[in-house]
Simulated assay, not measured.
Amino acid sequence: MFLDDFHCLVDDRTVISADQASRFAKRIAGDFNPIHTPGARRFCVPGDLLFALVLARFGLSTRMSFRFLAMVGADRPLLFREDEQGGIGVYDDDGKCYLQVHRSGETTHDVEVIEAFTRCYVAFSGKNFPHYLKPLMEQHGVMFNPRRPLVIYDSMGFSLDRLDAETPSLALEDSSLEVIGKRGDVSLEFRIDGAGQPLGTGSKKLVVSGLCNYDAEAMDDIVSEFYRLKAEDAEA
């Protein structure tokens, strides 16, 4: 399984190192969010890696919703548990819940289908910045603090018409930003296709913290740094 390089199992716990988390963010998602860089003050495991691990272990269902409740630090042992109603939770040994998953409808455990869906969703999700967020922030005249950029994964969900698509694709349909003081709630609506045919729809919510006035020069510097890191990683 392609996720083997991005986590390890210790007894019945899943452990993700800072290096594994960072490599998943960069190599699989194309996500260069500073909070996924080893050594970052507020380092956290990408939510998309937890999403991918859930699908790999419990399958892909026609309707699923994911709620991210807390940030996962490096090397924290995690338990992936399913309850009697089919809900899934990701917990640490203290009982703290980091992710809640609800699902319904049919479920497939086809490894190829799950990997294809995971890869296409994570690649779409990794475009949060600058592709989706920059135009929204510019439109509303706000941006995250350039010295401490913080964009947090809040939730996502999707509904599929069928589970047999081996070459799915995702495309942004609509986006919005609601500014609430120093906080911004971002909503991304997406379309899911399979072999050129409609397959389903989904949505994703992000939270941008520490909003300040939009600074075009500062934003240009951040975008330039994003592409510098991307090019540097491609050469590694």
Rank of each mutant, 00 (worst) to 15 (best):
R27S: 14
E115L: 09
Y132W: 05
G73M: 03
A18V: 10
D48P: 01
G141E: 05
R228S: 08
C212H: 02
R148W: 03
H36C: 04
G210W: 05
P46S: 08
G86D: 04
F68R: 04
F226V: 06
I28W: 01
H36Y: 12
D5T: 02
G141C: 08
S22E: 08
M137N: 03
L50C: 08
K205R: 14
G39I: 12
H131V: 11
F6T: 04
F58W: 09
V45W: 01
S176N: 12
G126K: 05
M1D: 14
S104Q: 14
P135K: 05
D94S: 15
T167W: 08
M1R: 13
A231H: 04
M64V: 11
Y121N: 12
A171C: 08
F6A: 12
G196A: 10
T62C: 13
T62A: 15
R81I: 07
V72D: 11
L99N: 06
H36A: 08
K182G: 08
N33I: 03
E106F: 02
C212F: 00
Y91Q: 14
G86T: 07
A21W: 01
H109C: 14
Q100T: 00
F32P: 02
L49E: 07
M71L: 13
C44E: 09
M64K: 06
G59Y: 07
A171D: 09
N213S: 15
E112A: 15
A116P: 06
F32D: 01
E173S: 01
T37M: 11
F58N: 11
R191L: 13
A236G: 08
A231P: 01
F117I: 06
S169W: 00
P77K: 11
N33S: 10
D83K: 06
F24G: 06
V111I: 11
G202E: 07
E232P: 02
D161G: 15
R147I: 08
H131M: 07
Q20Y: 03
F158L: 15
R13E: 14
L55G: 09
T108Y: 06
H131K: 08
T108G: 09
S125Y: 01
T201G: 13
S175M: 13
D174L: 05
G30R: 02
R103N: 12
V10C: 09
P146N: 07
S176D: 14
L211Q: 12
H36G: 07
Y227T: 02
G39T: 13
V208G: 02
F43S: 08
I152L: 15
A29S: 12
G89L: 00
K204A: 04
D4A: 11
F58T: 09
V186I: 14
K182D: 14
M156C: 13
D31T: 07
R27C: 04
D31M: 00
T62N: 11
E173P: 01
